[in-house]
Amino acid sequence: MTWTAALVVALVIIAVLAGALWRQRHYQERLKAQLKAATADLEQLQNACSRLAPAGVVQRLVADGIALDDAPGAERKVVTAMFVDLVGFTAMTERLEPALLVRVLNGYYQRVSDAIEEHRGQVGSFVGDGIVAYFGAIQPNPWQCDDAVRAALAMRAAIRAYNGELEREGLPPLAIGVGIDRGPGLAGLMGSRARREYAFIGRAVNLAARLQGLTRIHQVDILVTEALRAELDAGFVLVPMPAEPVKGFAEPIVTYAVRGRSEPHQDRGQ
């Protein structure tokens, strides 16, 4: 009788312990699943943030655990700024259905962004159909001028290829205007408490935007300033344009149209 009772007690204790263990395991697995889901959410959030600011900036903020309010201030840097815009966009908005227009625009944004990132630039922001990009803003880049012009030439080729696709669908072709300048300014996360974006503030951005406007006057697609030309590889074929007055600048601005690379440089695989 005593043995039977002891066995029953032992079995009960084992059952209770097994139950507790099972519950503990179940609890741990639930916590693990929650942690996994939270990690996935955070990764998704980080990916989403990477679309709003250059990936390098987002990664640093995440890696350092920095709250946006405490993010480091802007740094003084020499940066190459690029402004890209669609020529004839307003007319296109009147001709195309909104859904179709968005699809065509997204194709344009993607191709231009790819060309910028392929040449180590960062897309700063989308302004309507315009794109602002920086070269040498996040990491030091002594080759930023060559990179920017190569990116512009890659955009020209990419838009030409895209136009072939649009034409097959019976859609109007796209044309871009690109302005590029280089100069000192402040680069970093800027904005209000509620909304910030990675930006570069300096004369070069304003002038790049104005140059983009001048592409219509000169009937070319890529224009660079004298300051940028001075830093460029001699292998780029540049054509001087007549000096033009530009809003916000006292003197008329001398610009150069970029035709491409000279043949020996193309042979060298550039």
Binding site: P142, D146, D233
Partner: peptide, 8 residues
């Protein structure tokens, strides 16, 4: 070479 990563 160092300025443009290219030279003849």
């Amino acid at each position: 070479i160092l300025t443009h990563l290219d030279a003849p």
